[in-house]
Design a protein around this nucleic acid. Structure first.
Lengths: 231, 231
DNA sequence: TCTTTTTATATTTTATACAATCTTCAAAAA
DNA sequence: TTTTTGAAGATTGTATAAAATATAAAAAGA
């Protein structure tokens, strides 16, 4: 897994560009242009796009090409409901099996993140931190397939979470909830933890929906406006 | 979606060959050989294998090729637990929204299957029938993403279900439970239906585990023995 | 003028050819 | 005997080129 093939590299980078908002939903991803961008042939680009299709970020239309996907509000709601279901399952299995090293590691991730938060808002890797924390917390459950599904759901909704954080100031709130979550886990309070987790996820969802429906005035100008949206 | 590209065709066929047991877990899938098989170049074969990798049926090792995956007993248990969780969620959402046309369609699928069962055991498309029934039953929930996850879990475990049906005689039992499930759904008995569903899934899981651990004597000789298992 | 057919162009999809990497196996060294 | 080294062969990964298909524009007919 150490070695990275070109197709994998390109896939990672295009994924990043989609999630960062550079390629909004509905953008056609031309193989030629991308191949030129990365100075590779179109074959690894195609393979990268196929990988992203499997992740749900891109959709192929035969002989017409690949387009980035876009999620409706109802789909977003569904994704977050599934996260509640699966992450609740994971957390409930994890808490009785919780160990000190795991608690320590999760706490460490939070501290790192707190520090990054103070130094300046780098939203770019917030998702990574967030996922790393949740992953650490769920790890004692020993359920890799469930983690995999959660990871998929995260990838699909990541763009929208990013957007919400850009427009609102909910990061601090999420961070506080993370600390609480960790505390409940340390104390073995599974019910309280799961209840908090459910709120944590569903309120994030409602925040996103509010932004999508324009019910929120921007608290700051987004630094990555939607560029080159072509039909 | 009507048109099928060569890569898609090849992917469909290789998937079938994996699920049917022709390519058991750990088999290396040589691109040359497959390309010759289908009389195409290696490019569509590679793309097909990438698709299957995303489905979890195949795994790529850089510069070493693609191998069919194999599931451990613990992973199989996890997959079925997740099915319980997700399908339970779907069924619970579906039952209050159940309509007569849906009930009729699900019943129709069962009748078709009953007929096929009498005429002769064609295990090959049992999975399709089974999934079609469950899909129909869950459709009123209106949760396409959840259905998608369930479909993924099914694809991954399909090989093992097939194997179990080959060695044991549990099809009739599953079929009876399907009829009961439909009846509960018709009567709006969500709790009873979900409880039955959970048993239905978990007992199938235990059957598979029993076969894998050799705790079961074959009730019949399998008609598709594991061929060409190459290291 | 409007509709249908034809042609042209752009883009995707696939084939062929080449480069990079891994595996094998024999020979040499410890 | 066991381990290590290194070239030959095999296989994957990528580039380039050709074929197939879709979209748009132009031409023909009503």
């Amino acid at each position: 897994m150490a070695y990275k093939t070109r197709a994998q590299f390109v896939a990672d980078d295009i994924r990043h560009r989609i999630l960062s908002g550079e390629f909004p939903g509905g953008t056609q991803l031309r193989q030629d242009a991308l191949a030129a961008d990365y100075d590779v042939s179109r074959i690894p680009v195609r393979e990268a796009l196929l990988t992203l299709e499997a992740e749900g970020l891109v959709e192929f239309y035969p002989h017409r090409g690949a387009f980035t996907t876009e999620l409706s509000v109802s789909k977003i709601r569904e994704l977050f409901d599934l996260r509640v279901l699966l992450e609740g399952h994971l957390l409930r299995q994890a808490i009785p099996r919780m160990t000190e090293p795991v608690l320590h590691k999760a706490g460490q991730i939070l501290l790192e993140y707190d520090a990054a938060l103070d130094s300046g808002s780098q939203i770019d890797n917030w998702s990574d931190y967030n996922f790393a924390f949740h992953e650490a917390l769920y790890s004692p459950a020993g359920l890799p397939e469930a983690m995999n599904l959660v990871s998929q759901l995260n990838t699909k909704s990541d763009r929208y979470i990013r957007m919400q954080l850009l427009y609102t100031r909910e990061i601090e709130k999420a961070e506080r909830e993370h600390h609480d979550l960790l505390e409940f886990s340390r104390q073995g309070k599974a019910d309280a933890a799961c209840e908090l987790l459910e709120r944590h996820i569903l309120e994030a969802c409602e925040g996103i929906v509010a932004v999508l429906e324009g019910r929120v005035q921007a608290s700051q100008t987004p630094d990555t406006p939607h560029l080159q949206h072509q039909k």
